[in-house]
Each structure stands twice: as C-alpha cells, then as structure tokens.
C-alpha cells in the first residue's frame, strides 16, 4: 500500500520575529466573516497572539481541535528565563479558557489554513505578516497504510493491558450493537 501521498501544510512560527502587531488576527477574522471581509473582530480570529510586552512574550497560536474536557494538569514553560502562561502553546478550543470560541455562540473555532471558498494561495495571516514571523511551508509526505494498522494494534494492546482484554471486547460489542440500533 506504499506510495500514497498527502500534502502537509505548515506555518513556521518564529516568535523572535513577531513584533506583536496582531495583523494576523485582523485579516483572519475579516476573511472568515460573512460576507468575506464585511466585518472585523479579532475575538473571532483563529489565530491569537499570546502577548505580554513587558515580559517580551509574543506567541502566535493557531486554533486546533476542539477539546471536550480540559487537561487534568497544566504545564508552565520557562524558556530563556521567560515564564509562559499555562496553556500558552496549546491550540485547543477547550473549556478552560475563552480562546478560539465564537464570542456570541461559544462554538469552537479552528484554523482552516484559508482553504474555505475561495481557497487562498497561502494562509492570509502569513501574507499579512510582513515581518516574517509566520512563514508558510508545504511538503508532501508518503502515507503508509500498514503503519496505521500497526498503530491501531499498538493502541488496542495498550488499552487491553490497562483494562483487560475481556473488558475491551465487551465495550466493542456494546458499541457495535448500539451502532446497529
């Protein structure tokens, strides 16, 4: 099954080059408004700059997956003597914070790399970042499906070790029953 390819889109974030202008938030929220560009509101942006100028902290963060529950514990990063907020680097729209949620509805937001209609050549936050703190990169990666299968087996084995194989079997049976019903 080898040889299948997919495009990986990456935005390289150089926090040292960020000047804290938040133009990325402006263009993101404008692009995703409806009709396009008809309104601007950074609270709707799918990129936010975590910013503490006196502490010299500037971290552009993209909205990632929605998380139903917050993490059991928190991390606090200290890099080069700078203490970053808990969750500073996390992309999740999650119950622990108001980041990446529509301000009116509370629905989660997620970065779509500006692929929504019309798809943009590069994400607009990158285009509007003249200081090159955000750089867009595309590459192709081969996908090996067997590896995926292996992943599944490894995962199940881990679960079996934790909960017992019989338990896992029961759960799978119950799940397939409920799907049928």
């Amino acid at each position: 099954m080898k040889g299948k390819k997919r495009k990986i889109k990456t935005i390289n974030i150089d926090v040292d080059k960020c000047v804290g202008c938040m133009a990325c938030e402006v263009i993101c929220s404008a692009f995703h408004s409806s009709p396009k560009y008809s309104s601007n509101n950074p609270a709707r942006s799918r990129i936010r700059v975590i910013r503490d100028p006196i502490a010299d902290i500037y971290v552009p963060v993209y909205a990632g997956e929605y998380a139903v529950a917050e993490c059991a514990g928190r991390d606090k990063y200290i890099i080069d003597g700078k203490e970053y907020d808990e969750c500073a680097f996390c992309r999740a729209s999650c119950p622990s914070r108001d980041l990446f949620k529509e301000p009116d509805s509370g629905l989660p937001l997620k970065c779509d790399m500006c692929e929504s209609d019309p798809a943009q050549e590069i994400p607009l936050c990158v285009k509007w970042c003249l200081n090159e703190a955000l750089i867009y990169e595309e590459r192709e990666e081969e996908i090996e499906e067997e590896v995926k299968q292996e992943d599944l087996e490894i995962g199940l084995e881990a679960l079996a070790n934790k909960y017992g194989l019989n338990n896992i079997k029961d759960v799978i049976e119950r799940l397939s029953e409920s799907k049928k019903g």
């Binding site: 404008a30 408004s33 560009y37 008809s38 309104s39 601007n40 509101n41 609270a43 709707r44």
Partner: peptide, 21 residues
Amino acid sequence: GTGDINIAQAEEFLGMCNEVL
C-alpha cells in the same frame, strides 16, 4: 471589546489594504 466593526464595501476595502501593504 469582542464586537464586530463593519465594512461598507468589503472586497474593495480589503483590496486597498493589500495595495498598501
């Protein structure tokens, strides 16, 4: 503030912002 600011002629306005940049 977390409210919207509306633009009258969105595409044209954005076009000019891009020209400025």
